[in-house]
Design a protein around this nucleic acid. Structure first.
Length: 418
RNA sequence: GUGGUCGUAGCUCAAUGGCAGAGCUCCAGGUUGUGGUCCUGGCUGUUGCGGGUUCGAGUCCCGUCGAUCACCCCA
């Protein structure tokens, strides 16, 4: 038998139900925040990703890229930002600012899978374009926090680690670092927890800095850099979710201001979400056609799924969303009345009720069993007494007999009450 | 790309180098037109795949594919 590709997932009904819960939550909170949804193509010109990175960069190595039948170099999207920048540059003048856009899309990266990382995954992205104030930074961070709260997480479960690239650059330039030295220093700051001090000091030699200098800067905390964002988050009552932490650097070169990553408190997992301000990227990717300040972040479904499973409150919420529910099960007690039963089924469905019935002759007991299995709230029994029928509320086992013509009006009132 | 661990029924897992099994799921019954429990019965395996050692391999060895974890990287 042919197997699925490594790092790619099948979505059986129960998996789809999980995914739908995640996506529905992302969409609902985004709607509350006034973000509008957009999407782009899964396949883009490889040049779109080359432009942002130097040749040979690991990002490019991990592209699913190939030459299409028309001889074009194309790649499956590994992230959304280049597509967003392309789209924004094309119609920037058409939209009022600030633009608050989000999308939920699948992305592809050819790398070895491990916990929290697959080759195809779903990612939520949200961006605010055309507004450079700390108010926009706070709005984006608040959205990220409320997204996670909507899944049932609290400040006990996750934390936003907030940093600032500009504070880093100011510090490094004050120490005489040129552009290359800044890049080296930031890369080392990113590895402070992972690589031994001697190794990092060797790398830092060219910059005139030491690990001790970097650690001292992180420890000092640069409070003035975070004050406006923290104030705006405090006013929303979200202070408890945020922790200033200059040790967060993020790998990307294009960030220009606030950067943040969200981690589970127990630190068992990779980052749940990450993002930051990238004021020069739209201009760079559009060759100057559009110039918009921007801040955004991404949140993948894989790590999020792990944390949901590990967190009882979130897992319960997921289970509630997964519970099968249907409204009506039509029991065909007398097979000779199947035509009448189908008529009732159709009536229920046209009322908008989720309605099911047995496709083949079955004993009444089995049919009630099936109604239970499907999570139906009501059973309608069609049998010998037609045109009278029975309507039973399964939870209370209360049963009433009524004329079939009276069923629709009766169910309508039930629907209003539920 | 590098390294560790692991591949047995749809799922979770047993089986000292000696007859491949259990629970759950699924399917079918338990006589008249009413349920979640319960009872009975049944299906499903080239033990991931290919070699090797052995009288004999699920078990040991090699290769391969896959899963998983870590490194790398993390857009």
């Amino acid at each position: 038998m042919i197997q699925g590709l490594p790092g790619f997932r099948d979505f059986f009904p129960e998996d789809c139900a999980r995914r739908n819960h995640v996506v529905a939550t992302w969409r609902e909170v985004s709607r509350r925040y006034g973000f509008v949804e957009f999407d782009g193509p899964a396949l883009e010109s490889t040049d779109l990703y080359r432009k942002k990175n130097e040749a040979g960069a690991e990002i490019l190595e991990q592209l699913y890229s190939f030459t299409d039948r028309g001889g074009r170099e194309v790649a499956l999207r590994p992230e959304m930002t280049p597509t967003l920048a392309r789209m924004v540059a094309a119609r920037e003048k058409h939209y009022r600012k600030p633009m608050k856009w989000f999308c939920v899309s699948n992305f592809f990266r050819h790398e070895r899978q491990q916990k929290g990382r697959l080759r195809e995954f779903l990612q939520f992205n949200a961006d605010i374009l055309g507004e450079s104030s700390p108010q926009a930074d706070a709005e984006i961070i608040a959205l990220a926090i409320d997204l996670l709260r909507a899944f049932g997480f609290t400040a006990e479960h996750f934390v936003v680690r907030l940093s600032d690239r500009k504070a880093w650059m100011d510090f490094l330039q004050s120490r005489g670092c040129d552009e290359a030295a800044c890049r080296t220093a930031l890369a080392c700051a990113d590895k402070l927890e992972r690589e031994p001090e001697e190794k990092l000091n060797a790398k830092l030699a060219a910059t005139g800095l030491t690990v001790a200098d970097l650690k001292a800067f992180i420890a000092a905390g640069s409070p003035e850099a975070f004050a406006p964002v923290l104030e705006a988050l405090a006013a929303r009552g979200l202070t408890g979710f945020v922790q200033p932490d200059l040790s967060i650097v993020r790998g990307l070169a294009y960030y220009t201001g606030v950067v943040f990553e969200i981690f589970d408190r127990s630190k068992n997992l990779r980052a749940l979400a990450g993002g930051g301000r990238y004021d020069g990227l739209v201009k760079g990717l559009s060759d100057g056609a559009a110039d918009l300040p921007a801040i955004g972040f991404g949140m993948g479904d894989v790590v999020l799924g792990h944390l949901i499973d590990e967190t009882p409150a979130a897992a319960e919420k997921l289970q509630a969303a997964l519970a099968l529910t249907s409204d009506v099960f039509v029991v065909i007690a007398d097979e000779s009345r199947r035509a009448e039963a189908l008529q009732i089924v159709q009536t229920c469905r046209e009322l908008g009720l989720s309605t099911d019935f047995p496709l083949k002759s079955a004993k009444v007991g089995k049919q009630f069993q099936e109604a239970e299995n499907l999570g139906a709230t009501h059973a309608v029994v069609i049998g010998q007494e037609w045109p009278q029928i029975k309507l039973k509320h399964l939870a209370t086992r209360a049963e009433q007999t009524l004329d079939h013509a009276a069923l629709a009006p009766t169910l309508k009132t039930y629907k209003l009450h539920s």
